[in-house]
Amino acid sequence: MKFLVETIIENLPLARNPEGETILRELVHRGGYKDLVSDVRSGKYLRFTVEADHSNEAKEIIFDLCNKLRIFNPIVHKFTISKVEKL
């Protein structure tokens, strides 16, 4: 069976996030949303199509893959699997 696994890689919550900070400061706040929006975090979004027997297996494969291939580094990144969907 094929599964769609969506992952998000972002800097750890207490780490700096220069790209998000710049978007917040230069676009959002300058654009008139200073009172409404207080934070922007940028990150990386990857969507994998993976062959697996069930959704948990699909999740495991993608987590192992990202960890082993250093697609994220736990020392600076937070890694989340945001969605697993059967195709």
């Binding site: 780490a15 220069p18 020392i75 600076v76």
Partner: peptide, 10 residues
Amino acid sequence: ADRPAVQIGD
């Protein structure tokens, strides 16, 4: 756990 062990520069 939420804190990176190294800094992030800009």
